[in-house]
Amino acid sequence: MTGVALCLILEAGFLAAGEGGHLNPEAVSVAGTVLRLAQELHANPAGAELTLVLEEDGSDAAQALRAVADRDLIGVPAPAGAQACPPGSRPLLLSLRLVAGDLRNWVMGDARTGLEDVSDADRKLREELGVPVPRRMAPDHITGELLRMPPSTSIDTLHRAVFEADQTSWANLAGAVVLYTENSDQADGLRADGAQVLSRAVHLTRLRLLRDPPTDAVPLLTVPGMVLAEVPATETSGLNWRDLRFATLR
């Protein structure tokens, strides 16, 4: 077989986009998605190959990602990522800015506003590789589990959870860390470690943080002055999960 060999290079700046030098959870999510896809391709002789290279610059963000994904990453000093790619593979740089030269560039956000357009990384990479794309239901129809994490939960634990499962995300609502996952194995593990179930089957697209939830809302968590609730699809007040995803509200 002579399938596509793609080498995805994580630019050091990409990891800390918009986060004041800290590791951006969106970057962790993308890295986890890419590594799972690479492992899947490796296990199935369909001809396509994917390698992930981390351009390290000694930053806190790069070190934090290493702590989560150490054994799975090839690390090279920035900006030599392309040189670490396997022979014959096509380098694709995941970065915040357009880069001149032969390197193909996937620009996802900028240093000021953070990462944008990171959704569907799995699908987009599969399309680039020409391998099958499993079809998912529309987001409105998908449910997952909503957990309240124990107060002692560290940022490393959250990074690891985001890295390990597609679609996992969290929000810190006035000190209460709430985590959404569609992976039942992950939910089982987190519950065993002390996480509290807020909902076994919540529609993420209907989750909102509001001051005055409507009467037909299902309240899931109360924080000072606000209620996190599952609301009818027509409700538009308050903040939705897209606003809350990986955010810390004080």
Partner: peptide, 19 residues
């Protein structure tokens, strides 16, 4: 019943010869 909101998937024709 693959779960995870998956509806289905398919192999491409070019993959048949090798797998």
């Amino acid at each position: 019943a693959p779960g995870g909101g998956l509806l289905g998937w398919a192999t491409f024709p070019y993959m048949m010869e090798g797998d």
